[in-house]
Design a binder for these strands. Structure first.
Length: 289
DNA sequence: ACTCAGGTATTAC
DNA sequence: GTAATACCTGAG
């Protein structure tokens, strides 16, 4: 049932709007003048507001809002425990965890995450967001709420007739062909995404992701970490992560000369199976602070 | 005018 | 295998 619903939770730990929506994992949440955030995911439009000790979720939601919120915001996971574990590693990680204590990794739809991060390549955030919005507006479903129109991220069924040129017209630039080809591959099921959810070995899923056009190592890791595949044993390496890892553990005078392999090894050794989350705290800390 | 931005694909050693 | 290079676009 799609209708306007409200859900309030009290005394929720590890939940800060800015940390969640501004830590680089998502592109479709925007801050309102009152400090709340509004976003679209799946078939939902949601506004999230945080006061003293309560968080208010309101919007047009498809299904039971409590279930939808708990799933999307990963509320069943014990972030306090994770943060405690990470804080033991060293003072740097401890400080980064403290800085981004309200981070939660969202359970975002796989297709949306794949295409969004293909668009993110060598691009900046305002522009990434603009391209995604235009694609949603053209191919997604409209949802009206409080006199405003929102658009869902389109299904493969909706996207399958779009040409590379169409994506170019959405402002995608040289990524047009990559989006087009990946949509085609996904639609024709050249990869079996359903299987990915059962596969325990993350590296096997990663290998298949890498066959998609526009998906390289960094984008693949972002998809594994930020989509509902939810793999924490990955370590997306971008310029910020390279910088912070070099500063903290390597100290090479020329940051660009630090090899990926070196960073990966240190990450695995120091952070183990929580490396993806460590990456996120470190990334947010270094980029914002 | 010129650099830069959550990298990837392509081409060259 | 690993190292350079081109690549849309628009904001600063």
């Amino acid at each position: 049932m799609i209708k306007e619903q409200t859900y309030i939770i009290k005394n929720q730990d590890s939940f800060e709007l800015k940390h969640i929506f501004d830590c680089g994992q998502c592109f479709r949440w925007n801050e309102e003048i009152d400090g709340s955030y509004t976003g679209v995911f799946k078939q939902n439009v949601l506004n999230v507001q945080k006061n003293e000790n309560e968080i208010i979720f309101t919007g047009i939601v498809n299904g039971d809002i409590k279930t939808v919120v708990e799933d999307y915001f990963d509320l069943k996971r014990d972030y306090s425990k994770i943060k405690k574990e990470l804080s033991k590693i060293d003072t740097n990680v401890k400080e980064s965890v403290k800085y981004g204590e309200g981070i939660r990794i969202l359970n975002q739809e796989l297709i949306e995450t794949i295409l969004s991060f293909i668009i993110s390549a060598n691009n900046n955030i305002p522009r990434i967001k603009g391209i995604i919005e235009r694609i949603c507006k053209k191919y997604g479903d409209e949802i009206k709420w409080k006199e405003k129109s929102y658009y869902t991220f389109p299904s493969l069924e909706k996207l399958k007739n779009a040409t590379a040129e169409d994506f170019r017209n959405m402002g995608a630039g040289f990524r047009d062909k990559r989006i087009y080809e990946t949509v085609k591959m996904l639609y024709e099921q050249k990869v079996d995404t359903k299987k990915w959810y059962q596969e325990k070995d993350t590296s096997k899923v990663r290998e298949e992701l890498l066959t998609l056009s526009g998906v390289g190592p960094k984008v693949a890791d972002c998809i594994l970490l930020f989509s509902d595949l939810k793999r924490f044993d990955v370590f997306p390496i971008d310029v910020w992560v390279r910088r912070v890892m070099n500063e903290l553990y390597i100290n090479n005078a020329d940051e660009k000369k630090v090899s990926k392999k070196q960073i990966e090894n240190i990450a695995k050794e120091k952070f183990g199976s929580l490396e993806g989350l460590a990456q996120q705290y470190l990334f947010y800390w270094k980029r914002e602070a």
